Computed example of a mutant assay.
Amino acid sequence: MINFARSVRLQHLYRRDSGRLLIVPLDHPISVGPAAHSGHLDRLVGTIADAGADAVVLHKGAVRRLRPHRFRELSLLVHLSASTGLAGDPDAKYLVCGVEEALRLGAHGVSVHVNVGSATEERQIADLAAVADACDRWGLPLLAMVYARGPAVPDPHAPDVVAHAVTIAAELGADLVKTALPSSSGEVTAITAACPIPVIAAGGASADPEETFEQLLSAVHGGAGGVAAGRFVFTADDPGERVRRLSALVHGRPAAVAR
């Protein structure tokens, strides 16, 4: 059962008619250091909002540097997990924020990162379950970012492995799950059909932007519940134009997808 508060927030997230989402994760600085938008985050979020994204993902400190009116037509997902590329095990995600703190910041939802097959999988899955319980208690939607990464995963894009990863998110109470999907539209269809919650395709970052657009379009055609593209957006020469094309792709305006 979805309580009233959670339903209101989900409706704000899904305010467009397509039933899919375009999410722009901007949680990368803790992992990799200053990003291309460093010093201009508020301006970038304004551009992303104006270009038609449905939500952004941010860490708690970043939220405090934004003007509230950016979220009139944009949902805020506060990211609760972190790790750095400097660590001995960068796949070891841990919680750095809680659901109540995210609510105090004005979040419409929260996100948690889990690396299935990593050396610290046990703690990460337990963290996801605990956050899901808190989201139930406070009426907050939960995005689980679940990837197959670590010494126990020879092929993170294998369809059965990806299907297992997204199933974990659904079984533990997430409202939607983001992951790296296979390139085959048919394989994506099998994964999304078996998962009871929307599966959001991770954008990644390719040397060829048109190749990335094709992969994401294939994922949407395969039943993905939308796209989450971060680096693909904020490293672009024109982030607004990239978001407009992604929004067209996700929300079904084919003529606007073409370059």
Score class of each variant (00 low, 15 high):
Met1Leu: 12
Ile2Ser: 05
Asn3Ser: 08
Phe4Glu: 15
Ala5Arg: 12
Ala5Leu: 14
Val8Arg: 11
Arg9His: 13
Gln11Asn: 15
Leu13Pro: 10
Tyr14Ile: 11
Arg15Met: 01
Arg15Asn: 05
Ile23Pro: 13
Val24Pro: 03
Val24Thr: 09
Pro25Glu: 09
Leu26Cys: 05
Asp27Ser: 03
Pro29Cys: 06
Ile30Tyr: 12
Ser31Pro: 05
Ser31Gly: 07
Ala36Ser: 14
His37Leu: 02
Ser38Ala: 14
Gly39Pro: 03
His40Gln: 15
Asp42Asn: 10
Leu44Cys: 05
Val45Asp: 01
Val45Tyr: 02
Gly46Ile: 04
Thr47Met: 07
Thr47Ala: 12
Thr47Phe: 01
Asp50Gln: 10
Gly52Ala: 00
Ala55Leu: 08
Val56His: 04
Leu58Ala: 06
Lys60Pro: 04
Ala62Glu: 14
Val63Tyr: 08
Val63Ser: 08
Arg64Lys: 15
His69Arg: 11
His69Phe: 13
Glu73Val: 00
Glu73Tyr: 04
Leu74Tyr: 04
Leu76Ala: 01
Leu76Cys: 06
Leu77Pro: 04
His79Arg: 10
His79Ile: 11
Ser83Gln: 04
Ser83Val: 01
Thr84Glu: 12
Thr84Gln: 02
Asp91His: 00
Lys93Pro: 06
Cys97Gln: 07
Gly98Tyr: 09
Gly98Val: 06
Val99Glu: 04
Val99Ala: 01
Leu103Phe: 05
Arg104Ala: 15
Gly106Leu: 06
Val110Glu: 08
Val110Gln: 03
Val110Phe: 08
Ser111Gly: 10
Ser111Met: 04
Val112Leu: 10
Val112Lys: 07
Asn115Glu: 12
Gln124Gly: 09
Ile125Arg: 12
Leu128Trp: 02
Leu128Cys: 05
Ala129Ser: 15
Ala132Asp: 13
Cys135His: 00
Arg137Cys: 12
Gly139Lys: 03
Pro141His: 06
Leu142Ala: 06
Leu142Pro: 07
Met145Thr: 13
Tyr147His: 10
Gly150Val: 07
Pro151Leu: 02
Pro154Val: 02
Pro156Phe: 00
Pro156Ile: 02
Val161Ala: 10
Val162His: 07
Thr167Ala: 10
Thr167Asn: 12
Thr167Cys: 08
Ala170Val: 12
Leu172Asn: 09
Asp175Gln: 05
Asp175Leu: 09
Leu176Met: 15
Val177Ile: 08
Thr179Asp: 02
Leu181Arg: 07
Ser183Phe: 13
Ser184Ile: 06
Glu187Asn: 06
Glu187Gly: 06
Pro196Lys: 00
Ala201Lys: 03
Ala205Asn: 02
Ala205His: 06
Ser206Trp: 09
Ala207Val: 15
Ala207Trp: 02
Glu210Cys: 09
Thr212Glu: 14
Thr212Tyr: 00
Gln215Pro: 02
Leu217Lys: 00
Ser218Val: 00
His221Tyr: 01
His221Phe: 02
Gly222Val: 13
Gly222Met: 05
Gly223Lys: 00
Ala228Tyr: 03
Phe232Glu: 14
Phe234Cys: 01
Thr235Asp: 09
Asp238Phe: 06
Gly240Ser: 04
Arg245Ala: 03
Ser247Cys: 00
Ser247Ile: 01
Ala248Cys: 12
Leu249Pro: 12
Arg253Val: 14
Ala256Trp: 07
Ala256Gln: 14
Ala258Trp: 14
Arg259Ile: 14
